[in-house]
Design a protein around this nucleic acid. Structure first.
Length: 553
RNA sequence: GCGCCCAUGGCUCAGCUGGAUAGAGCGUCGGACUACGAAUCCGAAGGUCCUAGGUUCGAAUCCUAGUGGGCGUACCA
């Protein structure tokens, strides 16, 4: 409907120009919005005010000319008003709204899809936690946000791939192997002091147990071969656990990319050599530096240390080059907010590789405070005390966990209260939306029993849907695609929970005021179609969030 | 010190990239089940949008300077 209103404005402005009522000038993008206030109509445009300066005339005068030249051939408009400083307010006839529902009927499960992505290949990289320990609640938020961003982009016509980057090549890995080794020795009854910089979590001891059961004392005296083996064993084991945990959250990757792959065939140093030819690399004080300041970073960064070892950054440059050479037009990284200082150098790197700055987008996810009944749950990664993803999903369930992560803008801190998240009450927004869907399903079931199968658009009289509540509902349904597109463009998944919450609210109001199944056969069919459409949109939206749409609850 | 993020009713948060009288949920108070699911609905109270300037027809939103909180400032990952 919004597009139709925009077209009306466009045509009117063009004919004003032809008639000489407006100067031919640059006509900006015509903005039409949904006014909050009912008295401001169904749609409103500020176009007259925008044109005021270039036309050098009063906004209200311009508005009058535009309104006077609107050609409403389709008979959509009830009235058009000029208000305030020059807003043009459109009031749509009540009986034309339901036409919009035809789209829902036509597309069904695919209603909400668009092609703004135009097939552009985009990679979403997220989680990417070191396989040195189980995932905690902070990773879970990033996992869900990354997953849903991927869903939203896909439904908007992008070609999407989800990737997890495994940092399995640095000395964190050695530390992991050592940690297991020390615990292993402990189990053998050796009197050792467990180093403070090793991983303290109890899962390390459990791993040592497993290894002892499987291999006995084979590694006890041979530290040199033990550590590499234990490192790999532990990393593989932990990574498997991570994958399982992510699966309980409903997050599945297309690819796990190992950092080690980058070092094959001297990959990393070859890339550095290329960059040296381009003049971005120099040597100083026995280390090798990358001139990230050329692209706005505050200082240059080391890529090869004095001891000859490449830094994490060096590998990351190689990794991003690898991404682009695999054909991704655009790369999105979902990072914990504690990595924000890393953004400028990464953006510098891809520019040095000949990419545009916009080809890399970073979504920052703020950290999560885990609470129980409002009281912080103490967590210390170093001491190995934390609540894992598994424990959270086991306790509150996948749907509630995901919804809670998605409700807030990712760039703001999140309080995740375990008791609130699992409460099956009105305090929990997941149920509000799911309840609307279950209620719709229930009505559809009852109607079917009474001889009213779910109707299609062609079987109903849309002009019967004219009450305020019905029009509101249709208006919101019609807004769905635009909302998803906005969410895709801005990479803001939280818009979707807010939208369905609105939709559920309008539906509940409608339900409480009007009866769907009644003696009036035609009206019953029309309303059944309306709630069926509402259910479709809720279901489609929840699918994007990876949250189930139950038929009963 | 420098950089990034945040600051909106008692609490938790939206505010569609500059629009009209700033919105939800929770909590509080008062109402609605002999009708399709009361996990619902209807109503009320509650605001110097951190402060002070600036930009313009118009600012919670943009700019500057402060205040308060979080994070980052490695030849760690």
């Amino acid at each position: 409907m919004k597009e139709r209103v925009i077209k009306l404005l466009e045509k009117s402005i063009n004919s004003c120009v032809e008639k000489g009522l407006l100067k031919e000038a640059y006509i900006p993008f015509i903005e039409v919005e949904f006014p909050r206030e009912g008295s401001h109509g169904d749609y409103a445009s500020n176009i007259a005010m925008v044109l005021a300066s270039s036309q050098r005339e009063a906004p209200r005068k311009i508005a009058e000319r535009i309104v006077g030249n609107i050609d409403d051939g389709d008979g959509l408009l009830d009235k058009v008003e000029i208000a305030g400083p020059g807003f043009i307010n459109f009031f749509i006839k009540n009986n034309v709204w339901a036409v919009l529902l035809k789209e829902v009927d036509r597309y069904g499960d695919r209603y909400g899809e668009s092609n703004i992505g135009n097939g552009v290949k985009v990679q979403v990289e997220f989680v990417s936690a070191n396989p040195t320990g189980p995932l905690h609640i902070g990773h879970a938020r990033g996992a869900v946000i990354g997953d849903v961003i991927a869903n939203i982009l896909k439904t908007s016509g992008f070609s999407v791939s989800r990737e997890y980057y495994i940092n399995d090549a640095g000395n964190q890995m050695n530390m992991l192997g050592e940690s297991v080794y020390y615990r292993y020795l402990e189990l053998m009854g050796e009197d050792i002091v467990f180093p403070g910089n090793c991983y303290q979590g109890s899962y390390i001891t459990e791993l040592a147990h497993t290894i002892r059961e499987q291999f006995g004392d084979r590694f006890r005296s041979d530290r040199e071969t033990a550590i590499p083996f234990l490192t790999r064993y532990a990393a593989d084991f932990i990574l498997e656990g991570i994958k399982e945990d992510l699966e309980t959250l409903g997050v599945v990757f297309d690819r796990y990319f190992s950092e080690k792959e980058l070092y094959k065939d001297d990959g990393v140093s070859k890339i550095l050599q290329d960059l040296q030819k381009d003049g971005f690399i120099y040597k100083e004080a026995d280390a090798v530096w990358f001139k990230t300041t050329d692209f706005g970073d505050e200082k240059d960064r080391v890529v090869i240390r004095e001891n000859g070892e490449p830094t994490y950054f060096a590998a990351d440059i190689a990794y991003h080059l690898n991404k682009y050479s695999r054909g991704f037009d655009k790369v999105i990284n979902v990072w914990g907010a504690d990595h924000h200082g890393y953004i400028p150098r990464m953006q510098a790197a891809i520019q040095a590789l000949g990419r545009k700055k916009e080809d890399l987008e970073i979504v920052l996810v703020q950290l999560v405070n885990l609470l129980r009944n409002g009281v912080p749950v103490p967590m210390s990664t170093r001491a190995g005390e934390f609540v894992t993803i598994r424990e959270v999903t086991d306790e509150v369930g996948k749907d509630a966990a995901r919804y809670n992560f998605l409700m807030r803008r990712s760039n703001s801190h999140l309080d995740f209260d375990l008791e609130l998240a699992k409460a099956q009450s009105s305090e929990n927004p997941v149920y509000y939306v799911q309840y609307a869907h279950a209620r719709i399903s229930s009505i559809m079931r009852l109607a079917a029993e009474q001889g009213y199968p779910a109707p299609g658009y062609d079987e109903i009289r849309p002009d019967l849907l004219t009450t305020a509540e019905e029009c509101e509902l249709i208006k919101l349904i019609d807004k769905f695609r635009e909302m998803v597109e906005g969410s895709a463009k801005s990479l803001e998944p939280h818009r979707i929970p807010y939208y369905i919450n609105d939709l559920a609210s309008v539906f509940h109001s409608f339900y409480n005021k009007h009866k769907v199944i009644s003696d009036n056969v035609e009206l019953t069919k029309a309303r059944l179609f309306l709630i069926k459409s509402t259910g479709t949109v809720i279901k489609n939206a929840l699918r994007l969030l990876g949250v189930s749409a139950p038929e009963r609850m």
